[in-house]
Write a protein that binds this DNA or RNA. Structure first.
Lengths: 402, 402
DNA sequence: ACTATTTCGTCATGGCGATTTACAAATTAG
DNA sequence: CTAATTTGTAAATCGCCATGACGAAATAGT
């Protein structure tokens, strides 16, 4: 007999709803929808057995979801088993869509993802955004969004929300970019600049990248650390299937974890921060290269050609990352560490020394480090999917707007 | 309009219960009980308005809690306001009690806490436990537990569960002590040694200390870092009012965060871990003292007398702590850092350099660092209260056993 | 081919829990 | 002493899920 631990996370969809019969109904709608989405075409009976309700209850829930256009009936299953075949249910490919957007240092991107998780429309615009003021950038982005939304509309999709990934720190209001050094934006309220007719969420690209990893890649654990870097080095901490955001929303500032307390001074005021060793500028300098436009591509290219200076610089960066991650792993005990974002392109040269450093400093088996297969796509997909997730977590709310 | 963020923590009592009408009832019982406990004597109407149910619904819930003996009716309120006065409800001072126990390096302690949070009985036994095998220690502890339980029974309390704080790492099964260097225990299943008639939870003393801080001290934030040290340096991470445990239950190993990557070798395999600079042994060595029985007391005494060697050693330890905490704060963005456990006794000499280091390495306002007022009592109280909390979180479960 | 068996979806019924509505009781304001 | 206000409870109602029964649609066995 064991008393319950004090877990912070009960998990499961839609648990923020009130404890009334209507709230229960809404949560159960969400559970049905989640089950159908996660386990492909499913009969009502199959759903019932998975989520622990009776067939009758599931029937009425499914009716409601079908009426809302979130679930569609595919017709009778082709059975190999005895008994009347069920009627296959699947998440609808029409209806609400999640609009994801990314403001990168060198590009803007927008995509629309349907409830099934399929990307149905996308638009990209290359072009450096560093130092441009928010207004024009957002104006361009808004135009891309308009295009993507229109294209999605042609396929019977309507936008259920907009999520924007930015390379910087975002306040907990999910609207204000507090600091984006690569863009040189400070305390910018994107809510005032973007179309007001859509529910808006703004978040760090590392956070969205982590969510993409969590939701899109099979086998991703519920507790992991997602490291991402453009110029700054960010990390997202996923705990029990949710993001750890911190009081101000600044959690995951891996770039300013001290690696050598007496190292070179950093803009943050500290000394020897990870960014001084594994940040893009530092690596370029260590490799004897000049900063240029496609910096990651440059490094990857040189390293692939066998440039020993570049390789050494990356090895050293990996070692520094290993030291910082040792601290993080000791503190958080995650199930794995994932390298994502632009960083994943340099992984072949970073990983060996990173793993070696981590293993050397760990008693027992070291925390496994892997590379995201989503690569630079992660943040954009994570953003779009976060909107889809919100719909799946409370279908009743969105059905009311449909 | 803002789309919901992906929070990991809906928070609130008893959210692990199933989504059926009975589960709803159980959760609402918990909400009533929590409200009454947290906000002192309250009328049914007051409870109803706080938790958002109707007076009628609360009435039946309260009836059930009164019948279970968890709530008692104090009689009519003395009103200054117009209208019929309500009938004051309070949590019962009889009924279930939480039994907390602590296995320290130099002592054993047990206490009983009632639903109101009052400590009703306690027992302490001094005596070094380092290197003793688990069997005899647990036997002694069991005897103390028996005494405390008997004393509590005289006051109408019955034990609802037992929580044991140990100075070491505990597996997620909440029974097995994986590694307790100060006791020299390894992979010890306390579940097999302790009385089997009580629901048992075993956890790290830092974790229980953090919970005590969270639950007992007004104004404690929902996101903070609780640092604690006996010989090893442990930390507990509280996120959204819950403990972050990590995959294996080892989260919070602050002692092995690298502070100087090329520093002295550590037993963990790494180099320059915090423990090499701020661990008790390291500090004693740096101060030129021999390890002895009451080590913390020794250090505090010498420092208070003005022993400059000791003070310098503590200052340096504070600086090292500051470096490690900078990393942790950057990663977690907690609202505050609390120094607890034995460590709090040395705080006057550690804090200045710690704060200085943290501030120096932080852009903007540094994370506030405070000292626990619970001191060495924290873990024991946290353990007992964790049992009480479990009762408050699901009163129906315990009412069935009463 | 025909029947028995199994499974699916639905309907009618019932239980349970919260809301709604109404009302008596207990206080203050005038 | 009356009006107004608030509390607690009781009765009726509504919503949601469970239960049990039934027809429908498939397979398995004879």
């Amino acid at each position: 007999m064991t008393a319950p631990l004090h877990e912070a996370h009960p998990a499961g969809p839609g648990r923020a709803l009130p404890d009334t019969q209507q709230g229960m109904r809404r949560r159960n709608l969400a559970r049905v929808l989640h089950a159908v989405r996660a386990e492909g075409p499913l009969s009502r009976a199959a759903v019932a057995s998975r989520i622990g309700l009776t067939r009758a209850a599931v029937s009425t829930l499914v009716d409601e979801l079908v009426r809302s256009g979130l679930i569609e009936e595919l017709g009778p299953e082709r059975p190999g088993r005895v008994g009347r075949p069920g009627s296959a249910l699947a998440v609808s490919g029409r209806g609400p869509a999640g609009i994801g957007a990314e403001i990168g240092v060198d590009h803007l991107a927008v995509c629309a993802v349907d409830l099934r998780g399929t990307t149905r429309s996308r638009a990209i615009r290359q072009g450096a955004n560093r130092g441009r003021s928010p207004g024009p950038v957002i104006a361009e982005l808004t135009e891309l969004i308009g295009r993507v939304v229109a294209e999605a509309a042609d396929e019977g999709l309507w936008p259920a929300g907009l999520a924007v990934a930015v390379p910087g720190l975002v306040a907990r209001d999910a609207r204000t970019v507090v600091r984006a050094p690569n863009l040189d934006w400070h305390d910018t309220d994107l809510g005032g600049l973007l179309p007001a007719d859509l529910p808006l969420t703004v978040d760090n690209e590392a956070n969205f990248g982590a969510l993409a990893e969590l939701w899109l890649e099979d086998g991703t654990p519920h507790d992991f650390l997602h490291v991402s870097a453009e110029i700054g080095i960010g990390a997202a901490v996923v705990v029990d299937g949710g993001l750890l955001r911190g009081t101000r929303g600044f959690a995951g500032e891996l770039g300013h974890v001290p690696v050598r307390p007496d190292g070179p001074a950093c803009a943050c005021g500290g000394r020897g921060c990870l960014e001084q060793y594994a940040g893009e500028e530092a690596v370029l300098r260590a490799a004897g290269l000049e900063p240029d436009e496609d910096r990651v591509g440059l490094l990857a290219g040189r390293a692939a050609q066998g440039d020993e200076d570049v390789r050494r610089a990356l090895r050293d960066a990996g070692t520094a990352l290993g030291v910082a991650l040792t601290g993080a792993v000791n503190l958080l005990d995650p199930q794995s560490v994932v390298l994502g974002g632009e960083l994943s392109g340099l992984a072949p040269w970073l990983l060996p020394s990173l793993r070696e450093e981590l293993a050397r400093r760990t008693a027992g088996p070291a925390c496994p480090v892997s590379v995201s297969r989503l690569g630079p796509e992660g943040p954009l997909l994570g953003a779009a999917h976060s909107v889809v997730r919100a719909v799946l977590d409370d279908p009743a709310a969105v059905a009311a707007r449909a």
